[in-house]
Simulated assay, not measured.
Amino acid sequence: MNQSVKEFLESARCARLKANDWKEELAMIESDMSGLRSAGVGGLGVQNNTRRDLSDTLILFERKREKAIAEIRAMAELQEQAEALIHSIQYGPWERILFHRYILGETWEKVSEKTYFSSWQAASRAARSALKKLAASKEWKRIQENRRGA
């Protein structure tokens, strides 16, 4: 996988949205599981075949729940790596631009407003300079090595 710094940070930007989707999915799964449990798995008055069907369904839900949790963790790890990369640049204006754009997922207009650049184009130009600096950084090389090994 030969990914550029920008592609990596864009994937981290999207990870925030994906993680939110997985969290919603997890909440629905847990709600459904709770409803099934209260419907009588192991309770009185439920026939054996129905109890087995409910147990099988709960097992399927548990697998979906585990997948959702794993995906949320993966998205969080990606964002942590992106934050470490951004902070490795050690130049405040560039860090703020990249943080607002790729970690918080803000539009270029919002980034320029929050980082006090005169326009979104100026913020975008500064980000391009920062991305070039990051591409040559030790932190980027470390991230690439770790991702190749994963």
Rank of each mutant, 00 (worst) to 15 (best):
L85M: 05
H87Y: 12
E66S: 15
S88H: 01
Q90I: 12
I89Q: 10
E83R: 13
I86Y: 09
I86G: 07
I69A: 04
S88R: 06
E71L: 10
E66T: 05
A70D: 09
I89Y: 07
A70K: 04
I89T: 08
K67G: 04
L78H: 05
I89N: 09
A82G: 06
K67A: 06
H87P: 00
A82H: 11
Y91A: 14
K64V: 08
L85T: 02
M75E: 01
I86S: 06
K64R: 15
I72F: 00
L85E: 12
R65T: 10
K67F: 05
Q81H: 06
E77D: 09
H87A: 11
E80A: 07
E80W: 01
M75W: 01
I72H: 00
K67T: 09
E77A: 08
Y91D: 15
E62F: 09
I89K: 09
Y91W: 15
Y91I: 14
E83L: 15
I86M: 11
K64T: 10
A68N: 05
Q81Y: 01
A84W: 12
R65L: 08
A84V: 09
Y91C: 12
K67Q: 06
S88E: 02
A84L: 15
I72V: 03
A70R: 08
E83Y: 12
K64P: 06
R63I: 07
R65V: 02
E62G: 11
Q79S: 11
Q79V: 03
A82P: 02
E83S: 12
A68V: 01
S88P: 08
H87D: 10
E83D: 06
A84Q: 14
Q90W: 14
A74M: 01
I72W: 04
I72L: 02
A70W: 09
H87C: 13
E80H: 02
I86A: 14
S88F: 04
A70N: 13
S88Y: 05
R65W: 08
M75R: 04
A84E: 12
E66V: 02
A74R: 05
E80S: 11
Y91T: 15
I69L: 11
M75L: 00
R65M: 14
L85C: 08
A76G: 05
E80N: 10
Q81S: 02
I72M: 00
E62S: 14
R63K: 12
A84P: 07
Q79K: 14
I86H: 03
R63H: 05
A82Y: 04
M75S: 03
A76T: 06
Q90P: 12
M75G: 00
E83G: 14
E83H: 10
E80M: 03
E83P: 13
S88V: 11
E71N: 06
E80D: 07
E66R: 11
Y91L: 14
R73P: 00
S88I: 07
Q90L: 12
